[in-house]
Amino acid sequence: MLKTSTTDAIPDKKVNATHRHSFRLNAKDKYYAAVFLGPSLLVLGLFVFYPMLKTLYISLFLTNTLGNTTVYVGLGNYVNLISSPDFISSLFVTLFYVFAVTFFTVALGLLLANLASQKLPGIAIFRTLYSVTMGVSVAVAAIFWLFIFNPSTGFFALMSSWFNLPVMNWLTNPTSAMWAVIITTVWMNLGFTFLILLGAIQSVPNTLYEAADVEGASSNFQFFHITIPMISPTLFFVSTITIIGSFKSFGLIDMITKGGPTNATNMLVYRIYKDAFYSGNYSKSSAEAIILTVIIAFFTLLQFKFLEKKVNY
C-alpha cells in the first residue's frame, strides 16, 4: 500500500545552494570574478601550485648544493628512498606515531566529550577545563612537557624519587622518547578534539535518547547504538584531521627530540627539513616531500568524498 499522495512526498534532496543562487548570467560577472578571485589565485599560484610542481620537478633530478638541478634521474630518487632501510624505518616511525596519536586523541576526546555532555550542575567548568589545551602552542607545550620529562628535575623523575624507583631518562631511550612525543601531541590535540566531539554529541536530538529510555535501553547500549552512530561523521572528521595533522608534525619533534635518539622519532617532515637544509640534498628532500604530499592528499580526498556525502546514514 504505497499510496504516496502528493501531500506525502519523500522530501527532496537538499537543493544545491549554488543552483538556488543561479540568477541570470551577467556579462559583468567575469570582471567582478577577476577582482574577487584574483588576489587569492595569485597567492595560491605563487606559493602553492608553483612550488608543488617545482618540488615534483626537482625530485626527478639530482641537485648540487646550491639547489640547482643537474642530472635527470627519473624516479631514481624514489627508488633510492624505497630501498633505503633508513627511510623505510622513518616511514614506519611516522605511521606508528600517526596511528598512536590519532587513536589516543580520538579515544580520550570521546571519553571527555561523553562525560562533559551530561546535564549536571557545574558541568560548564569541566567543559572549559577540558578545552584548555587548544590555547597552547607548539613551543609552550614542548617546554611544559620537557620539564616534566626532564631526568634531573622533572615531575616523573620526582615521582620516581618519592617512590624510590630508578629514574628513567625519557628522552634518551628510543621507545620512551617516541612515547614522550606522542603524549605531548595527544595532550595538545585534546582540547580541539574534545570541543568538536562535544558539539556533535550535544547535537544528537534528545528524543532519540528518550525513545531509547522508554524502550528499555541501558545507558551503555545507548552510547554504542545511538551516540556513536549519530556522531560517526564527526568521529571520521576528527580522525582524518588528526591523521593529517600528525603526518605534518614538526615543531614538537624539533623541540623535544630533534628526531633522536638514533632516529627513533625522525619523522617525514623532519627528514624533509634536515635533508634539504642540513645536508643540502634537495632532490632527496623533494622526493620525500612528494611522498608526504601523496599521503596527505589521500587522506584529504577521503575527507572530501565524505563531505560530499555529508552523512554516514
Binding site: T207, E210, A211, V214, M230, N312
Partner: peptide, 14 residues
C-alpha cells in the same frame, strides 16, 4: 509502556 514522539525519534542510521 511505549511512546511515539512528535518528531518520531527514528534513528537515522538504521
Amino acid at each position: 509502556l511505549t511512546m511515539v514522539f512528535q518528531s518520531y525519534a527514528l534513528f537515522p542510521f538504521l
